[in-house]
């Protein structure tokens, strides 16, 4: 009698431990795939058309990517609306836009800083804040894909569903999902060439009629100051678990002489930036806006007699952003 129970118990134990091990292996397998995905973006040559749905808006772009002599070359071409091309050559970015483009209007307001490849996505530390699992297969852009769910373990970040190419681990489709299950952003290749068939000449900008073209060059600013947190004037009293500072630097808007302190935090997948500038003469002390899954929150920071304006921008839920921005303090 007791032996029989013992046998049943052993069998049950064996089954449970097998399934635990299998789950563990699957999780590791999924994390490995994510690392392969990141490498694929950098190392592979690809030329494809993708659609990007964000903030209720659907856009189509063509992307051509190649690594030539160790330098990242990328060309993004807007296929709808006003023509816009973005040519990336290593660390410098050239935007070719038509007059009246949003980016031209914004040029003077973009705080430029040193952009180094300051951090890499660290999938190995995701397990504290997300669960990563494979969930079957799918087909995107006529290619077979492995599907991965990256689910947040708390309410301070969003979830992702990823479709990775089974041959190359290139990301074919991704969805960014909020806690109610709404898809806030969808990225999806509709057509894709991978490998040697990608031609160098397709990395060059198309010829537009000269007078109609504006060049907007965004490149590392030599007077931008990368700084360590120790010498930053500002710090955050609270960040959600798992978020660590990725970069801190001081930027400057072309339109202003004032410095903008910039802090960027990442949990390995999600990021948010905090910008702090002296209080402008005219402006709302408090403002919130959303662009797809990205929230921007502005709030006045009082430190003694001096007022500053802090702006948080990030792919995190607004409530979390509100708590973070309230925790800003002067060192």
């Amino acid at each position: 009698m007791s032996l029989r129970y013992y046998c049943i118990f052993s069998l049950w134990l064996a089954l449970v431990s097998t399934s635990l091990v299998t789950n563990q292996v699957w999780a590791n397998e999924a994390e490995k795939l994510l690392m392969r995905m990141d490498k694929a973006f950098v190392e592979l040559s690809y030329d494809g058309v993708f659609t990007y749905f964000s903030g209720g808006d659907l856009t189509s772009l063509r992307v051509v990517h190649k690594q030539i002599d160790g330098v990242q070359r990328e060309r993004l071409v807007h296929l709808n609306g006003a023509p816009r091309e973005i040519i990336r050559h290593g660390g410098s970015v050239d935007c070719i836009v038509m007059p009246g483009d949003d980016l031209v209007a914004l040029e003077q307001s973009i705080p430029a800083g040193p952009f180094t490849r300051a951090f890499v996505r660290q999938f190995d530390r995701l397990s504290d804040t997300y669960s990563v699992e494979q969930f079957g297969e799918g087909r995107v852009a006529n290619r077979m894909a492995t599907r991965i769910a990256v689910s947040p373990l708390d309410k301070h970040r969003y979830g992702y569903r990823l479709w990775l190419d089974q041959n190359t681990a290139l990301l074919l489709r991704s969805e960014l999902i909020d806690h109610a299950g709404n898809r806030l952003e969808i990225f999806q290749f509709t057509q894709l060439i991978i490998g040697d068939a990608v031609r160098d000449e397709d990395l060059e900008a198309s010829q537009h009629s000269g007078s109609m073209v504006n060049h907007l060059r965004l490149e590392p600013v030599p007077n931008g100051l990368p700084v360590k947190q120790a010498v930053m004037d500002w710090s955050l009293g609270w960040v959600p678990p798992g978020f660590e500072m990725a970069t801190a630097d001081i930027r400057r808007k072309p339109s202003s002489v004032e410095n903008v302190s910039s802090l960027m935090y990442s949990d390995g997948l999600a990021t948010f930036s905090v910008f702090i500038e002296p209080m402008p003469k005219h402006g709302a002390a408090s403002m919130v806006s959303m662009n797809g899954a990205t929230v921007a929150i502005t709030r006045r920071v009082d430190s003694g007699q001096v007022f500053h304006l802090a702006t948080l921008v990030g792919e995190i839920p607004e409530a979390t952003g509100q708590v973070i921005i309230r925790s800003i303090r002067r060192n």
Binding site: F272, M287, T294, T311
Partner: peptide, 11 residues
């Protein structure tokens, strides 16, 4: 605000 959006996306 848009300037900050672009700056964030860019980084």
């Amino acid at each position: 605000m848009n300037g900050f959006f672009v700056s964030h996306y860019q980084s």
